[in-house]
């Protein structure tokens, strides 16, 4: 009875619902799904439009593999360092009982710094740690430490990693702070009452609880750095052979002289970020079995 009675209203509602989510669906299809499919298709199509594995095979040249490898290393290093340092700072501020006003100031700053990426960030690091940057000069003239003679270069792997940390650390802090807030004071007290030291509490309870959140953020940080280009471009121009710069040049001027190869390059990037996520989901599932 109730079923038949409610059906007419149900039927009248459907167009409303469909209409409301239509823009979202159209948008997702047009600007997310179709472009991705087009790239996947392009990666397996030759110039004449036939199916081929040649583009994928074309990725396995020293230049392209090297670009992927540098990108993975920069993203991995900046993600792992960013996660560890971000976790340490957030723990210091929230659990280290530093003054409360400090916390809100740091979190506001993190919001700014995590969005202070791209070109201006590169400018700031050039002005500080570039060849004639202020920090470089002060270290050389005042402390007698010549960074560039010691082998450091802002336009190298470590230079780029150091720069990326400027937005990776705050991003970690912003995403992990709620998880740290979720650690109940009583868990620590209960552990103490059972004889545990602070280290044992973190070893057996605190860090295992944070672990899934840390992992999730890690994969986010990795993807964040892996897809970044503006900072690297403004910092190093084409000097550093990372995969985004390679793809950027390909899109601008067909640098690889093969659009199919460009699509394969893009597909490779999607595969790598997806892989990072799959690894995360796999590990998180094991780490999260105690969650609802």
């Amino acid at each position: 009875m109730t079923d038949t009675a409610s059906q007419p209203t149900q039927r009248r509602r459907i167009p409303w619902d469909a209409l409301a989510i239509a823009p979202f669906v159209i948008f997702a299809v047009m600007f997310l799904v179709l472009p991705t499919i087009s790239l996947i298709g392009g990666a397996f199509t030759d110039r004449a439009g036939n199916f081929t594995f040649e583009n994928i095979g074309g990725l396995f040249t020293p230049q392209i593999l090297n670009a992927y490898w540098i990108s993975i290393r920069v993203s991995g290093a900046s993600a792992i360092l960013g996660a560890l340092i971000g976790l340490a700072i957030t723990l210091a501020i929230i659990r280290g009982k530093l003054p409360a006003p400090l916390r809100s100031a740091v979190m506001t700053f993190s919001g700014v710094a995590s969005n202070f990426a791209g070109v201006p960030l590169a400018f700031a690091f050039i002005a500080s740690l570039g060849r004639i940057g202020l920090v470089t000069i002060i270290l050389r003239d005042v402390f007698g430490l010549d960074l560039y003679r010691a082998g450091f270069s802002l336009f190298s792997f470590w230079g780029l990693t150091l720069t990326y940390l400027y937005f990776q650390i705050p991003l970690m802090m912003l995403t992990i702070a709620p998880a740290i807030d979720g650690l109940k004071k009583e868990w620590n007290e209960a552990a103490q009452m059972l004889g545990a030291s602070q280290w044992q509490f973190w070893r057996y309870v605190g860090l295992p609880i944070l672990w899934p959140s840390v992992l999730g953020t890690l994969s986010l940080l990795f993807a964040n750095a892996f897809g970044a280009i503006a900072t690297a471009w403004a910092l190093t121009g084409s000097n550093l052979n990372i995969v985004t710069v390679l793809l950027y040049n390909q899109i601008r001027g067909d640098a690889l002289q093969n659009p199919g190869l460009g699509a394969a390059l893009a597909l490779g990037m999607i595969v790598i970020t997806s892989l990072a996520n799959i690894i995360y989901l796999f590990v998180a599932q094991r780490a999260e079995r105690w969650m609802k």
């Binding site: 997702a28 600007f31 472009p35 087009s38 793809l247 899109i251 659009p259 990037m269 970020t273």
Partner: peptide
């Protein structure tokens, strides 16, 4: 999931798709 994708698929890749499409 859909709204997370733009964080996972680099903007550079998406814009390449737009230009092709």
């Amino acid at each position: 999931f859909t709204t997370l994708l733009p964080l996972m698929i680099p903007a550079l890749v998406l814009v390449y798709g737009y230009i092709r499409l």
